Amino acid sequence: MFEPGHLNRKKQPGMPGVPDYDIDVYYEVRHDPKEGVLLHFRLSGQVAGQSVAEEFDMHRDTAFNFASRLAKAAVKLGLPPNASPIMRSHGEYDAMFADIRKKLNVNPGDPVDFDHLDKDGC
């Protein structure tokens, strides 16, 4: 389920080898005096009956690599690499991408600082 600033994912039937999970992904724009505009992500919920939580920031110019960064966070929380909750519904991914673009006021062709890719774990 997606709504601006929030995505919820639960394990779907027919996913052998994937533990039960129910994860919420929240994101919001933050302003850091040193780093500038950041997109803050907070994941919380449960994986295999255990409470999980993870938070991280991404710079404005690299935030569109959020699916990769969320997949890495999901693995850290105990999900297999092929069970990333972000890619289970392409329509919701598109809506989240559009919402992030709007929140950050980013346009195609805006420059990317490649140092941010490293800092953001992309």
Rank of each mutant, 00 (worst) to 15 (best):
D20E: 14
Y21R: 07
I23R: 03
D24W: 03
D24C: 00
D24I: 08
D24R: 07
Y27T: 07
E28N: 10
E28Y: 08
V29S: 01
R30H: 11
R30E: 13
P33N: 09
P33C: 09
K34H: 07
E35C: 07
G36M: 04
G36F: 02
L38N: 01
L38C: 05
L38K: 05
L39W: 03
L39A: 08
L39Y: 05
L39S: 07
H40S: 13
H40A: 14
H40D: 06
F41R: 06
R42V: 14
R42F: 11
R42D: 14
L43Y: 06
L43K: 07
G45D: 13
G45Q: 10
Q46H: 13
V47L: 09
A48G: 13
G49H: 12
Q50P: 00
S51E: 15
E54P: 00
E54I: 02
E54R: 14
E55M: 14
E55P: 04
E55F: 06
F56T: 05
F56P: 03
F56S: 05
D57S: 11
M58P: 02
H59N: 12
H59S: 15
R60M: 10
R60P: 01
R60K: 15
R60G: 00
D61G: 10
D61W: 06
F64D: 05
F64G: 06
F64T: 08
F66W: 15
A67P: 07
A67H: 09
R69D: 02
R69P: 01
A71K: 11
A71Y: 01
A71G: 11
K72Y: 01
A73V: 03
A73G: 04
A74R: 00
A74C: 12
A74D: 13
V75L: 05
V75A: 02
V75N: 03
L77C: 03
L79I: 01
L79S: 02
L79K: 08
P81L: 00
P81S: 03
N82T: 10
A83F: 05
P85S: 10
I86R: 02
I86G: 03
I86D: 05
I86F: 13
R88I: 11
S89M: 08
S89L: 07
H90N: 06
H90C: 00
G91K: 13
E92T: 11
Y93M: 14
Y93W: 12
D94E: 12
